[in-house]
């Protein structure tokens, strides 16, 4: 990893208590450090357990998907992360420069014929770890919602 990650933390006087933004270079070695950086600044409205496991795992999945399938490991591109936090919880937006995809077209990794596949569990895992998952119309931005608690 050569480029240091820079998390911008703001406390705007509007809708959210805290807004954080982070640009992540499109290389998989940045996933772990980016997850740790955001998790360390996660709002107190989330329990330590949900920060330790749910937030970290779901964010790692979203970043890896954006880097690999969205930006195709192109290190001249960045994945943009925006975290909006308030007393009700946290929303994490992860956006890449790709053409997007159809989430409904991802096969169920728990079917017997898919169980021994090495890949294809990311979206399934992610959906089970957060309270809500939404995509923009293009499919190149995912929004993960973790409610307080």
């Amino acid at each position: 990893m050569t480029t240091p990650l820079q998390l911008e933390v703001r406390r705007p006087a509007g809708e959210f208590d805290v807004v954080m933004t982070l640009d992540v270079p499109s290389a998989l070695e940045y996933v772990g450090p980016a997850v740790e950086l955001i998790a360390r600044h996660a709002p107190a409205s989330l329990s330590p357990r949900r920060i330790r496991f749910n937030l970290r795992t779901a964010l790692a999945e979203a970043l890896a998907n954006a880097i690999a399938y969205g930006n195709l490991h192109d290190t001249s591109r960045v994945v943009r992360v925006r975290v909006e936090a308030d007393r009700l919880g946290v929303r994490i937006h992860v956006r890449d420069d790709g053409a997007g995809f159809d989430p409904a077209g991802v096969p169920d990794p728990t079917l017997p014929q898919n169980l021994e596949r090495e890949v294809g569990r990311g979206l399934f895992v992610l959906r089970h770890l957060v309270d809500h998952v939404a995509f923009n119309a293009t499919g190149n931005e995912i929004c993960l919602t973790l409610r307080a608690g």
């Binding site: 330790r52 496991f53 970290r56 795992t57 790692a60 999945e61 890896a64 021994e116 596949r117 090495e118 890949v119 294809g120 569990r121 990311g122 399934f124 895992v125």
Partner: peptide, 17 residues
Amino acid sequence: TGYIDSSGLGVLVSLSK
């Protein structure tokens, strides 16, 4: 271990095979 993502699960499946 704190957390394992789907790539981590995938590598375990591959190694097991």
